[in-house]
Amino acid sequence: MRIVVCIKQVPDAKDVRLDPVTNTLSREGVKSVINPYDRHAMEEGVRLKEQYGGTVTVISMGPPQAKAILSEAISCGVDDAFLVSDRAFAGSDTLATTYTLAQAIKKSGAVDLVLCGKQATDGDTAQVGPGLAARLDMPYVTCVKKINAIKDQVMRVERMMDDGYDEVEIELPALLTVVKEINVPRFPSLRGLRKAKTFDIPSYSAADIDADPAQLGLGGSPTWVVKVFPPECKGERSMIEGSLEEIADKLAGILSDSAYGA
């Protein structure tokens, strides 16, 4: 089984702080990391390989710095990794991104299973997984929390829904997006770290993946960001002070009025 996992480099949410004065994001000293959901996708790929045999290839679309996360992926047990990077990709919305990733995956050879994180923590669209499946003409299941079995090219998985979960059977080749409950990602192994040290990560350009320039980057993106602005600030908060009785009294009033209507 050949498994491809798509990963993205995002700013580490742990380090992100709101600037209390400007109410904007302070990115000073923010590290770039593997999108947290993608870690679970990667781990699931490695586990499936260990159980069913095969190989795991990790790909990322991004600036040259994104090689760092691919190298980390190698240290965590994946077999192969490559980057797709080109200035022509700048300004890609999810439609252009799925085109680019699909071209890269097709170019890399036949694939049985594509794994993605449910969404990336910087864009939060959750659109790339399903869109990529459409580009690859693969069936897919989003928000997978468990893979129960693979038998005769049919996979049985559990999909998170808003009100519970569905158990779904899906034919391979297929694409899954995963949520964090699916597994606990492993740390890099010593062997993996040694491999990562010498592994030269190839980088492919738009031409290398036979991409149609009209479908890339800004030009290939139907959505345009026309305005970016800070969210409306809340008015001044009021602190409730006084004796325990006074506080409890006021709070009970606020909660009942807000919950049941004044």
Partner: peptide, 15 residues
């Protein structure tokens, strides 16, 4: 909301 809700973005699909 974009960027974890820290900025708002207005988006159009003009063509």
């Amino acid at each position: 909301p974009a960027f974890g809700g820290n900025i708002m973005a207005t988006i159009i699909c003009p063509k």
